[in-house]
Design a binder for these strands. Structure first.
Lengths: 148, 148
DNA sequence: TTAATTGCAAAAACTTTGCAATCGG
DNA sequence: CCGATTGCAAAGTTTTTGCAATTAA
């Protein structure tokens, strides 16, 4: 899904919920798109503040991200100590993450077999899965090489 | 591993690091053991405060949990919104979690095949895994039944 | 018009930290 | 004795919220 497509779907989502189509919300989406696919909220807030003269306040950014999570365009994907890293889901299919604890690099991967096994487990426990998250923490190749 | 065994290993860990063996640290371990295997820190702090007349202050509890994480007896296992759920790892083998978003129930499971697949993925990316966490969010059987 | 949204500042929730007193080795 | 630990209160982070003014429909 491209950004424009996402925005029009989000517009539809807002309308359906009886919410309003405001400029700020769409500017925040653009900014997240510019920022990159992984972000921490406070970091994003500061980045936006440094870039532009106030397209939206901190509260509006927090509130909009909550909406985007509800809509499904933003997911909490990594929790490392007290940090929470969010992901902007634009057109990407579902995937999991490898996180380098040394340099912070995030690698995305997908294995159908892992998904299938999860479904099997859920069946066994009569558990109805809604979503999941797999985080693998370790050392990436570059960092490993530098160490040697 | 039983609690007493864990405590003596922790004692060894402290000694090795040049840290001190204090009564408070071991009382906190006992309390976590009494509390159950999954906890949130603030909740634990309040629980301990209500139980006893101060075996340790909030700071000491936070500091001790940090030590226990370093030692490996406590792990951050679930992140749900702003809540972080820790797990007390006593003798349990490694496992993953199913989390019911309706009632909060936590089900532990383990699938060797999932672990193996993760290793394969890491190999592909030349990534050296240190640890991982798989959280599956959904509705448990009981909650599903109640709904119907 | 009117209900949702915004920005602000204040509050809330969670976690860390500086410091003086205390305790363990 | 010396360095680690504790408790406390203060400060730091991150996130939410009440409210008056503003804006979208």
């Amino acid at each position: 899904m491209q950004l424009e497509e996402l925005k029009s779907k989000f517009e539809e989502f807002l309308r359906q919920k009886g919410y309003k189509i405001t400029k700020g919300r769409f500017e925040i989406i653009d900014k997240i798109g510019d920022y990159g696919s992984h972000f921490e909220i406070e970091e994003l807030v500061r980045w936006i503040a440094n870039q532009d003269k106030s397209i939206a306040s901190r509260s509006t950014i927090y509130r909009t991200i909550r909406l985007l999570q509800e809509f499904g365009a933003v997911r909490e994907v990594i929790k490392l100590g007290n940090r929470t890293i969010y992901e902007f889901v634009v057109g990407k299919p579902h995937h999991e993450h490898l996180i380098c604890v040394e340099c912070g690099k995030i690698i995305e991967f997908y294995r159908d077999e892992i998904e299938e096994l999860q479904d099997k487990v859920c069946e066994e426990y009569k558990f109805t899965p809604l979503n999941h998250r797999l985080e693998i923490f370790g050392i990436c190749y570059d960092c490993k090489s530098k160490r040697a």
